[in-house]
Design a protein around this nucleic acid. Sequence first.
DNA 1: TTTAGCACTCTGCACGGGAGACTGCCAGAA
DNA 2: TTCTGGCAGTCTCCCGTGCAGAGTGCTAAA
Lengths: 346, 346
Amino acid sequence: MLEPTQLDERKQRILKAVVSDYTLTGIPVGSQVLAAKYFLALSSATIRNELADLVGTGYLQQPHTSAGRIPTDRGYRYFVDFLMQPEAAPPAIRRTVKQEFDTAPHQLEGILEKAAMVLAQITENVSLVTAPQVSEARIKHIDLVSLEAQSALIILVLEGNLIKQQIVNLERAISQEDLSRMAAMLNRKLRGQSAEELSARIGQLGTDRGEQRRILERLIESIKNHQAQGQTVVLHDGMRNLLRHPEFVEVNRLEELLELIEQGAQLAGILQQVAFEKDVEIIIGRENTSSGLRECSLVLTTYKMADRVRGTVGVVGPTRMRYGQIVARVRLVSQMTSDALANLGN
Amino acid sequence: MLEPTQLDERKQRILKAVVSDYTLTGIPVGSQVLAAKYFLALSSATIRNELADLVGTGYLQQPHTSAGRIPTDRGYRYFVDFLMQPEAAPPAIRRTVKQEFDTAPHQLEGILEKAAMVLAQITENVSLVTAPQVSEARIKHIDLVSLEAQSALIILVLEGNLIKQQIVNLERAISQEDLSRMAAMLNRKLRGQSAEELSARIGQLGTDRGEQRRILERLIESIKNHQAQGQTVVLHDGMRNLLRHPEFVEVNRLEELLELIEQGAQLAGILQQVAFEKDVEIIIGRENTSSGLRECSLVLTTYKMADRVRGTVGVVGPTRMRYGQIVARVRLVSQMTSDALANLGN
DNA sequence: TTTAGCACTCTGCACGGGAGACTGCCAGAA
DNA sequence: TTCTGGCAGTCTCCCGTGCAGAGTGCTAAA
């Protein structure tokens, strides 16, 4: 990997200035601008030499001969790893966020939707939020509802008051009374466990309880299916914000991107594969495996519930984004989300 | 209102040809094209005279002096009311739709999501689907789950296996056993009623059951709140399709439109106000009250559950759309949605 | 009432030239 | 050795021009 020592201090300052200026203005940055705005002690000629070096080593590029410089993906990466400093969100923003979370419903999905909405708003980009894995969530309550035609509805109340439902077909019609009794029994035995743990536990119900056992098997099976289909839900908001960015005036790229976001399945895969070594993970431009994201960056972090990491919150936008600002705001929303989920209790 | 007799038969045929050709090609239609493609018996000069009349009466317009004609909103309205004939969806499309609905989950929200997805796909526009009013839906099952800190979770299973939840604060902690007993009682008394009917029924529980009554009041209240906030959910899909239409290369309009769709609240209002006199309602261009839709058309119809109209399905797209085709496809999806919901039983 | 012909208008596109921005390089200064 | 001023070169962007093409409206004749 890159070492910060690869660039001397002056080159670092110049790279930082180019990234900062370009992310703000969207205009390629020339040596004169740099000299005037950032390096009063140096002449533009000196800066030109440094810029040429930075182009040579792949941190900057030139759209055309007589244009200023813009960062390459590598340049952004260096900036993000070694030069960037998060810009704490201003009080007004913090206040808005707090207000929004205060009015969120006391329930997992509502909170995540709120998180997506707020994050899109304060970053002016597209927000992404993954819902937790169902199989890892503890079961709070099980209910069985009799439907006509020999089938029943299984209702699972999970941590965060998340509700999952599934229809099971039974061999014979079972009355609501019997189902309620069964549900009461299941509640006594299974409360507080996760669906994953359920699989192990299933033998302990005894062989004589054929019907219960079958229902339980269906239940576990359905939860696993949910998982296997890669059905991780990815909430998103703020697509409209994409249109504001000049990099998307060409509509072709945008279409691919919108499709990726609307369909969600591929995104879910990407978000789950992210290795969270640091608190905030940033994926820049061509570092993305997906072609639709080749000119985009992702800024991602996680949120927690009951002290365990449960899902991802983050932002997609053009590679030219104000990383320092966005990182701070993504972190803020992640924190508020975790707090809101903690207030749900268990 | 307009009478079909306002236009003689030849003008009708010309208007129809202009609308058809323009919706297909997107190119303003000139007199020569019309003569060559549609009116072999007439010269272009004759058609020019007719076109000039149609411009004079407001059915057509000219983008500029030396361009062909395009329909005005009024022209589209006339076309839709008197000239259009629905184009039955081809077997391949019908098959896709059927397959998608066959794989939909047995549950209201899943079916509506499927409807939105399919409709977006087969119309290549943005689909809209409203969820039913909660207050009108019959209650299948009520469950109460004890949470820590003197609160409980009310779970309502409604028609279509739609689940609604709400947290209530209690004066004192109540054990899960007591809550379950209470739930069993509520189930016996309230099953099969709608939330609206519940309000009337509340007195019959007797004054002695203070705690139950309070829970019930909260429950009704929460359902009403749901309603009052105009919280009608509007599902949508296919935003990416908008980018394909040449009318949206100018990104300004698009942004307003995307915002309208993503936020949903205003749309919900529009969709609920639609008076369904015919089976399919079409709103064209400036007939829309909302400024974001001034250059869009809506093609809307309803779906049913248990023989009652419960929600709206439809499409938003540019005014230049193939109305005949879209109407047939919206109808198809509406029908399939109603069928799928019927299979859920009650 | 329809048609042929014609002059007219407007768009779209290609071309060209000039202004502006920025560079790279070189020679001289620190 | 490092920095700087100067200068020629290059490329984009913008604007004006001119031309081809499409389509019209009008007029006069069939």
